[in-house]
Design a protein around this nucleic acid. Structure first.
Lengths: 261, 261
DNA sequence: AAGTGGTCTAGACCACAAC
DNA sequence: TTGTGGTCTAGACCACTTG
């Protein structure tokens, strides 16, 4: 039930009549918000189908075209996936499609397929208090608990990524090194399944840095080798930051791929 | 006039009847192709308004909704820009909006505005034969002429980017160091204006590398400093590569920003 | 055959910009 | 006031998937 603003039933042109600026919001945006709420609340789980367009239209008392536009935008933002003839599904990190949805590092050969899943080596997994800078980025208090994970990812036996994950402790109670090591598939898929945390978008800041001694050893490169520093802040619904990831990529056999338009 | 496939006038369901797979193409895709052709042919120039949706609908003999969908996709791909109440415009690099549409390097402060336009220092601008690797990427013969430009971009007096541009000689006859140095605004805007070449999308490969002596001096950093290597291949319409750009970014005061979803 | 998303149309009305 | 893009509806039909 969208808040009535433009509707053919409303033959009168009554304005929204809210406080301040009317802030006109199209019907389909309101529908989008409602669908988002259902996603957030877990009414439909990752990988599952949401109700058909007709059903949603009936539920929200709008035309099919209007829910279509709402779903279109959610699909454009990778929150939903449409499959003709089958239905519309909640996006997930668990589908092998592109293996790692947020990882832009690809082998120079371009042959992504020849490269099996990354071998994971967990170096550390501990709960601690959030350092000030981490807390700020995760939008939590610096007295709050966080889980810190350090690990190395290797491709075909070559250690390629060294990364630290920082997760809000409240949402990731019980996360262990074993769980991180054992889960088959993307870590973000495990987060969906085990903790109900769905990463929806992310921002990355990329730099070139020189490896220090410890980093060099872990990545099996010589000291001071140039490495790609990738700081990723990943968000769930509602623009809530849920993971800070600071990674170092070897770029001697791989590169970070980006598309601009 | 789109090739008839689905149309209410076609009461019969005659199949496309082409060779091989029918390869069904929706009407709006065909319209999209026609609009693309007009863009390509220069019928509408960068920054100009294209005909209104109603006019296009009449011209192509389809409904407004169909051209709307075609235009929507072109706008999503940043080829067109819609402005409510004013019209739909051909996208251009000349608008100061985001200054440099394809440059993802931003100051660490985040304060993009405080940073004036880059100061350009042209080190070299010459015509030569395309080296084999360059020719391959630009999809030209290695006997073909190319223009090579080397320059340094500085922000607030700090040299930050060292880059080589490789351009197909055929399309850039007469390009000179003076022209590159004197033009106010993005280089891609100058390409649009002077050479009718519009960069529409690009692919980047990013690595971390160590500065050699010459590079270090030009960027005013110590030798072997880590630098971000960004190789960009920029395309015009029709997926035709029109520029190869190999750049080194200093990332001590700036970083490469990327959004994932 | 039934159900889903995908396309297309026709027409009404709204928000925005410019004259 | 006029013209533009933006929203919304209702209904028809197409393409794809599954039983």
């Amino acid at each position: 039930m969208p808040s009535s603003t433009p509707h053919p039933a409303d033959s009168n042109g009554s304005p929204p009549l809210e406080a301040g600026t009317p802030a006109f919001s199209p019907l389909y945006q309101q529908i989008k918000g409602l669908i988002l709420q259902s996603l957030q609340s877990g009414e439909w789980k990752p990988g599952e189908a949401i109700p058909s367009e007709m059903e949603l239209a009936a539920r929200f008392r709008v035309s099919q075209g209007t829910v279509r536009k709402a779903v279109d935008e959610l699909a454009a933002g990778n929150l939903l996936v449409r499959r003709q003839g089958k239905g519309t599904f909640v996006a997930t990190h668990a589908e092998h499609q592109v293996q790692y949805r947020f990882l832009r590092l690809v082998p120079d050969s371009g042959d992504q397929a020849s490269e099996g899943p990354a071998e994971r080596r967990i170096l550390e997994c501990r709960r601690t208090r959030a350092p000030a800078d981490i807390a700020r980025l995760l939008a939590i208090r610096s007295t709050d608990a966080v889980v810190q994970v350090r690990r190395v990812l290797a491709f075909n036996g070559t250690p390629t990524i060294l990364e630290d994950l920082w997760l809000p402790g409240a949402a990731f109670k019980g996360l262990s090194a074993e769980q991180l090591a054992d889960y088959r598939g993307p870590t973000y898929a495990m987060f969906e399944l085990e903790y109900g945390v769905r990463m929806v978008r992310a921002e990355e800041k990329i730099r070139a840095v020189a490896a220090d001694a410890a980093q060099a050893e872990l990545l099996d490169v010589s000291a001071a080798s140039p490495l790609l520093s990738v700081e990723r802040l990943a968000y769930t619904y509602n623009d809530t930051p849920m993971e800070l990831r600071r990674a170092l990529y070897r770029t001697d056999t791989h590169h970070y791929r980006n598309e601009l338009s």
